[in-house]
């Protein structure tokens, strides 16, 4: 993409500007780099988790469980795979990311801020009146990185498929990434979109399924099982890849394979994840689907994250 050289300088200025507040002083560390080493990704994993918890604590509501299970996927996208120009984001050709499971936007907002698309300070306004950081992503706020409003589940894959159709029509090589929840696959429209995208051979479309096997009411497998999920995608003529959604090496290899475009099928990455990943008392616990931590819980969680490892 253009202006990649200017990008680091831009981020530098951006961060200086936004670190007047002591609360976010350490963020000067997180300059975007083209080839970050694994340690840098791991420190980002920790950093994004801290931001998610702080954000939801300040908002007094939100969805920590699913936000924490999507962190590594989101980081891989924003810090490695998505091609965009942070300066004049909307004016340029770019890869698109749609967060179909809109309720886990804290994870996206943290990545937008850490990659220089929105000011770090903005994170404190999550869910507050007048904020650009709505409880579910809003296109109205024209935030760099939010490509469409989401929140009503089941619609993101169709939107991504439509974008992929349009980009193919214009012979552009940009990619579309859509992050779906596993419970979201219970929605009928998802399967309409799955059929449309394989019918139109949209190999520029990549769906990632955050497969944490939990939804509001409990285990996905108990409520309405989506198994056998790989076979389902295979039989709908998708290119299907199963990975551990917290393992960077596996995530990168899956995205690399999608980027090869050696098939005319759309790609589904089924990422096995842990809801609440990184905070022991939130892990695999459906009661943390949509609840904010109180002060004690936040402190406990941040303390645990000090020794975070993947």
């Amino acid at each position: 993409m253009n202006n990649l050289k200017n990008f680091n300088i831009f981020i530098f200025i951006y961060n200086i500007y936004n670190t007047k507040n002591i609360y976010y002083k350490e963020d000067l560390f997180y300059f975007w780099e083209k080839n970050m080493n694994l340690d840098k990704y791991l420190s980002l994993s920790k950093k994004v988790r801290e931001e998610i918890l702080k954000m939801i604590f300040l908002a007094k509501s939100g969805h920590p469980g699913g936000s924490l299970s999507t962190v590594e996927i989101m980081i891989a996208l924003y810090f490695k795979y998505l091609r965009f120009n942070a300066v004049d984001f909307f004016e340029n050709d770019r890869d698109r990311f749609i967060l179909s499971k809109g309720h886990v936007c804290p994870s996206q907002y943290a990545c937008l801020a850490l990659s220089g698309l929105i000011p770090m300070d903005e994170l404190k306004t999550l869910r507050k009146i007048g904020s650009k950081l709505q409880g579910h992503p809003s296109y109205k706020a024209k935030l760099k990185g939010i490509e469409v409003s989401t929140g009503s589940l089941g619609q993101g894959l169709s939107i991504g498929s439509g974008m992929a159709l349009g980009l193919k029509l214009d012979k552009k090589d940009n990619n579309i990434y859509v992050l779906l929840g596993d419970g979201e696959l219970q929605s009928g429209q998802i399967w309409e979109a799955i059929m449309t995208s394989s019918h139109y051979k949209l190999n520029n479309l990549c769906a990632i399924i955050d497969y944490n096997n939990l939804q509001i009411d409990g285990k996905v497998s108990d409520i309405k099982s989506i198994m056998p999920i790989k076979n389902k995608f295979d039989s709908f003529n998708w290119n299907t890849i199963e990975i551990d959604g917290h393992n960077y090496a596996e995530i990168f290899s899956a995205f690399d394979r999608f980027n090869l475009k050696d098939t005319d099928r759309p790609t589904a990455i089924i990422a096995k994840t842990v809801k609440g990943k990184g905070v022991s008392f939130m892990e695999n616990n459906p009661s943390w689907h949509g609840k904010a931590p109180n002060r004690e819980e936040l402190d406990l969680a941040l303390k645990e994250l000090e020794n975070f490892k993947l």
Binding site: R96, V148, I159, S161, G162, M163, E192
Partner: peptide, 12 residues
């Protein structure tokens, strides 16, 4: 349902 959202994507 897909129809409306595919169109949304195309418009975007």
């Amino acid at each position: 349902q897909d129809l409306i959202c595919e169109a949304a994507g195309l418009s975007l």
